[in-house]
Structures are given as structure tokens and as C-alpha cells.
Design a protein around this nucleic acid. Sequence first.
DNA 1: CTGAATGAAAA
DNA 2: TTTTCATTCAG
Length: 446
Amino acid sequence: MPAERTRGSRRTESDGQRLVWTMPVEPTDPSGVSFATNVTPTSFNESPHTALDSPISENIMFPPTDDNVSGPRRPTHSKKKPENHIPRPPNAFILFRSSFIKSQHVSTEVETNHSTLSKIIGLTWQNLPEKERQVWHAKAKAALEEHKRKFPQYAFRPTQGKKGGTTEKRKVREVEPKDMKRCAKIAELLAAGLKGQELDSAMADFDKHHVPEIVTRFEAPITARAYRRSSSAPIPDTENSKSSQSFFSTVATARKMRASSTRPTRCPTPDLANPANLDQATLKKEPSFDFSSFSFEKTVSPLPAFACDPLNEPIPPSPADSTMSHPDAFPVPLNVNTASFLDDWNQCTTPITPGTPDFLESPSPPPFAGSYGTFPMNLEKNVPDMPATFPAYQQCGLDMGLSGEHYLSHPSDYTAFPHHPDSSLTHLDIDFSSFMNTGPVHQYQL
DNA sequence: CTGAATGAAAA
DNA sequence: TTTTCATTCAG
């Protein structure tokens, strides 16, 4: 399991705030490279010598940066660390990454986001010949020994996940999926020996034809009620704490809404995997939208076309439809009358999206009273080259019939669309009538 | 302050 | 087995 790394709550202690570079904790460092006690070295320069230096193999793909002279040595991050914090000794990968970054093997032309770079470097690390990896492991070992020498009394003391009262909910993944295909491509090229300039052009070429996935997310339908609640007390988080990686906690949502005046947060799309949760009773009961009942539990990839033919009636429930080609495809039935909550929902769109007046002035007025809902949509990147109007829901899921790919195993109900860099739509007309008892088209401002 | 990778060390 | 934290810096 790709056990996602959660970042526990951070220390709350008073942070030193000031970054001192001096700290006589260590005996005059003979190597000249010194670990400031409270500041992490800008990067790990190899120790100036060491018999451990592996024989400079003629064919090292990513030779360690050799600049010994400590660089600018800026405080990498002014984190909240005790005044005399001693950083952990770097492991092989960290050393490799550090060197890799410094070497600019992947120029900022290709990628600047470090999160993404980590992905790329991670892949590169895997592709790295065992022999070359050993070099880094050796360096890590050396670094460890050096560290031990410098800080004999050092002991790794991870802070126990803040238990105290501080609620501190676990982090909620809220980032868009990365364009892994592109990352893989870069890693592939790197493995092939391309880097720097060569890589730049190679990628420029690749990007010309590569159709990155543009990620769309359906935001949380904010009801007037929900909105009101949000401004005060936290909304009770409907369980799902564990798997609730699936969605923002309502608390997070509320906080976010207040924080940013932009669009509302996200929006759980109907729980297609559990249509039962969408019965009217539920909806009527909680017109403000039950977040917990709206989540995709599985990845709903390309779904069978028959599942939701817009021209036909909603397909009746069929739990384990054996005809489903995709094991994760959800059970289809999605006969939901949204009138009960959409009405309320629409009413509060305004206060939340003050910046988008035309949001309510959608040129396509709801044909049927109370039959429309506004699934605020956020396009993370550009808008794909898609028809201005398309028969929504040709396929189950909210892939808009664009044969997109869903990222629903994650919290977010992301929908990826083929993307065309030049296009630019401002809205989408979506017809939910095929899966909801709603009227036809509704326009979504993008 | 986070994310994102891998891995060492600790809980 | 699960967490933390090393690096890095744009967002």
C-alpha cells in the first residue's frame, strides 16, 4: 500500500525564530563543513576526501555535485525547531536528491515544483543502476559516521504524534494528482542519459504532443445552511475519519471557506458506490448535504457506456453487475432527486462566490424548478478542448463523457480530462438528467 | 507550512 | 508495524 505519508502535527513549542549560524557544539570542524546546530546545511557536500569515495566509475550517470565549498548556506527552511536542533543524518536518497537538485539535471524549464521533482527523482532513483545507488549508500554511511563524530550524543527523537488536546486532524490530501506520465517520461529520459539542456528540448518536444491530464474537481455543494454553520462552529465530522482521506473534513472545508474568498471548497460527488446513501430520505433529511454520504470510494475509471446512457432511463440498481468490465466500476443506479437540497443549495451560492456574479446568472435557467444544483467546478489547469456543450454523464461517474480518468480513490473526486493547451472555455454545459431526476443542461462557470 | 520521494531510526 | 524527519523550495 502506498501508505501515504502523513505529516504529523508539528511541534508547538516556541520556535527559536532566529537563525543562528554559530553553535560551538562541535569541536572545530576540521573539514570546514559544519552543521550549524540549528540550521541545516544548504546541501550535503561530500566530505572532502574520504577513502570511501567509490572509484570514479567512468560511467556514473549522476555524479555527486562536487562543489565542496559550502554554498550560500541559507537556512533552508525556517522551521520551528528548537534552538539547538541537530538535523538527522541524510540517507542515501536524500543525498542523491540533494545532489540531483543542485546539479540541475532537470532544469527549471522542465520542472520547478519540488513535489513533482521528488517524484521524478524517486523514479530516477529506482532506475539507477544498483552500482550507482551503492555509491550513495556509501556516502550516507560516511555521512552518518561523520554525524556521529560531530554529535556523539545525538539521538533521533521523533516527536510523538501530538497527542494532547490539540485536535490536529491528520492532514488531508488536497492536492491534485501529478502528471505521472510526464514524470515517468522525464525519469525515462534521465535514465537514458539525457539531462540539462538535452532534457529540456526532449521534454519540450514531448510536451508538444503530450496531452496532460487536466484535473477538475467538483467542489462541495454548499448549502446556505452549511455556509451559515461554517462561519461558526465546526461542522461535526461525520465519522469517516479513517478512510476520510476521501474527502475534506467538513471542518477543513469550513475553515477553508472562510480563509479564501475564492470558490467554495470541494464537492463531494454523489456516492455512486453506495447509491443507497442517496435515497431521498437521506437527502430530505439533510438538505444541507451529507458530506459523508457523498464520496467515491473507488476509482471509477472508464465505465461501460451502457451504464448511463443519457438517452435512456436511469439504470436500476444492480449491485454486482457482472457485465461491468471494470471491477471498480460503481453499481450504476443513480436515481436521485436533487430538488430537495439543490434549492437550498442554489440560494447560497452567492455569498460564497462573490467574485463570480455570473455564476448565478447562468444563461441556462433551470427548466424545472428546484431541479438544478450547482456543482462548482474548479479547473486546476487549463480547460480541455471539449465541446461547449456535451451530453453529460454519458458514462457513469462525472467524467462528463470525456473518457476522463477519475482519481477517486483519493479524497478528491478528481476528474481528469484530455487537455488541449490552447483551448480555453469559460463554462461547461452539463446535463445531469440522465442520472438525476433533474432538468437538462446546466451551465457551470469555470 | 506542505508536498513528495526513500530510508534510517524510534515508538 | 507505523511515524518522524532528513532535503528542497514553489505555492
